[in-house]
């Protein structure tokens, strides 16, 4: 029997829109963007129904399509502007001109928490999201591809068209800025 007949497309929105939406929303900038990606996932899946071969579940298959949509989104977001003036400006903000030491008012403070315990409060994640949105788009893309999608470095560089050296610089800047933003808005809020 034709595998695509096992697809229950008329129930996709009921069955999967919430879980796909939650997944996408954790990875892209805003709600409208996330809705678009979920909708596009269903439409693309339907158009490609003949390629479904029933070795994967319907859900797994939809997720695979959805992930590709997210990666397309990252790629577009980071080619649109700003690729890489690898200047030192971003780090000067933290380290001063010679880079030797942290600027006194920018250096990490002690956090009054147990580093062995996982973060369980919801507030953290909404603040994380705001902090992520403050990064440049290309930084958001490398960060999300690595830490949310678990894609390897080489593939990220190829997808975004950046060099490995640039990747390290972008990633480092994303981390240093995220840490500072979270310290300010979450730890010391």
């Amino acid at each position: 029997m034709d595998a695509s007949r096992k697809l229950n497309a008329s129930s996709w929105v009921d069955n999967y829109s919430d879980i796909l939406y939650g997944y996408v929303l954790a990875r892209v900038n805003n709600a409208a963007q996330a809705e678009d990606i979920v909708q596009e996932t269903f439409l693309s899946a339907w158009r490609a129904r003949d390629t479904y071969n029933a070795t994967a579940s319907e859900k797994t298959w939809l997720f695979a399509i959805c992930k590709n949509k997210i990666i397309d989104y990252y790629r577009k977001a980071s080619t649109s502007k700003e690729i890489l003036a690898v200047d030192d400006e971003a780090e000067d903000y933290f380290f001063g001109d010679d880079g030797r030491h942290w600027n006194e008012n920018k250096k990490p403070q002690r956090w009054n928490l147990d580093y062995n315990k996982n973060i369980e409060n919801k507030e953290f994640y909404s603040i994380l999201k705001k902090c992520k949105n403050k990064l440049k788009e290309v930084q958001q893309s490398v960060f999300a591809m690595k830490y949310l999608e678990d894609i390897d470095t080489q593939e990220i560089c190829e997808t975004l068209g950046i060099s490995v050296q640039n990747y390290w610089v972008l990633m480092h800047r994303a981390k240093i800025q995220l840490r500072t933003c979270l310290e300010k808005n979450w730890i010391n809020a």
């Binding site: 919430d18 809705e35 953290f124 994380l128 830490y147 995220l178």
Partner: peptide, 19 residues
């Protein structure tokens, strides 16, 4: 310490917002 801690927690995060 702090960035390791944050990265670990970001990885295990599952979003539960609904449409």
């Amino acid at each position: 310490t702090q960035t390791n801690y944050l990265l670990h927690n970001i990885k295990i995060h599952q979003q539960t917002e609904r449409l």
